[in-house]
């Protein structure tokens, strides 16, 4: 009997990480299982644990500037993950619970990697940084801190930040700092999907019903004052772009405007005419929203300082 293409297992399939197996009798290693759409594997991408390990072994150690920069990106992603996590069990449809859950998990993964790396500077762990810093020590910018609002506000925020993160990570993947480059190279692919997810929803909400269009327009109006802050340069980004470890945020703006502009044009939406907010999160001056978010996120860890979970 000849081997049909359906049962042939390519070599790469059998190499590397094996199946995560299951308590179900007969489903592993049977011919059916190899053709099955339920075959599951962990994949082999760069994980936050790998960064933490490299840091603890001393093979990855950021300088002060890079650590501060990683803290910024880690805090942005962490605050966003905390916001998005709230949608799980509350989304407009069950399928969307899962979609937003995936995005939240991606962001949390990026946060953990950036924070693990940042902590390498002075020997703090991702959890030390997430749970035991006070509000002024956080470095997130305001747009990430904004409350979820309705689904349109969440989508507007997601649309802006994923187009921003995409441009940023795309460039950071070329960073002279190998760890930043590694984290960004993994993250940019995930964020690319976040762009697509939010763009799909921008189109549907803007061109669905009159009600949804109104809400989408309102969502962008709520979000847009905080867009400028994403693209502001400061001394730190100046030094880092000089060394090739990072880029000036302002250099991302043209691509951001062009690509978001294409989607907004297709959705027949205009960029809201609103005044930009001054922000200040990079210096520890936060929105009124962040304190509540941190209070909730940190409460249990702080009730039991030094405990392990």
């Amino acid at each position: 009997m000849s081997t049909s293409p359906e049962t042939a297992v390519p070599a790469e399939e059998t190499a590397g990480h094996g199946d995560i197996s299951v308590g179900v009798k007969g489903s592993a290693n049977s011919g059916e299982a190899t053709a099955s759409a339920t075959r599951i594997t962990p994949g082999n991408a760069l994980r936050p644990e790998d960064i933490a390990l490299a840091v603890s072994r001393g093979t990855a150690k950021p300088g002060e500037d890079v650590a501060e920069f990683a803290l910024r990106l880690g805090d942005d992603a962490l605050v966003l993950a905390q916001r998005l996590g709230h949608w799980i069990s509350r989304a407009p449809e069950l399928e969307e619970d899962i979609a937003l859950g995936n995005i939240a998990l991606d962001q949390l993964g990026h946060a953990r990697s950036f924070l693990s790396y940042a902590g390498g500077f002075d020997g703090r762990s991702e959890d030390d940084l997430a749970y035991f810093r006070r509000e002024p020590e956080f470095r997130s910018v305001e747009i990430f801190e904004l409350p979820n609002g309705d689904f349109a506000v969440t989508i507007a925020r997601q649309f802006v930040v994923s187009y921003y993160q995409f441009e940023l990570y795309r460039r950071l993947a070329q960073s002279t700092d190998a760890t930043l480059a590694g984290i960004a190279a993994k993250a940019v692919k995930e964020v690319d999907y976040h762009r697509d997810h939010s763009a799909q929803w921008v189109l549907r909400l803007a061109q669905g019903t009159d009600e949804s269009r109104e809400k989408m327009i309102h969502g962008f109006k709520v979000i847009w004052p905080y867009v400028d802050e994403l693209f502001r340069d400061d001394e730190l980004t100046g030094r880092l772009s000089g060394s090739g470890a990072a880029v000036e945020p302002s250099s991302l703006r043209a691509d951001f405007d062009r690509l978001t502009g294409e989607v907004l044009a297709e959705a027949e939406l205009e960029v809201p005419r609103v005044q930009p907010a001054p922000g200040g999160g990079r210096k520890g001056l936060h929105s009124e929203h962040l304190g509540y978010l941190l209070a909730e996120m940190q409460v249990l860890a702080r009730e039991y300082p030094g405990a392990s979970w």
Partner: peptide, 11 residues
């Protein structure tokens, strides 16, 4: 399609 070379299977 669970991997290259295999058919699409109803999931």
């Amino acid at each position: 399609r669970s991997s290259r070379g295999l058919s699409h299977v109803h999931a």
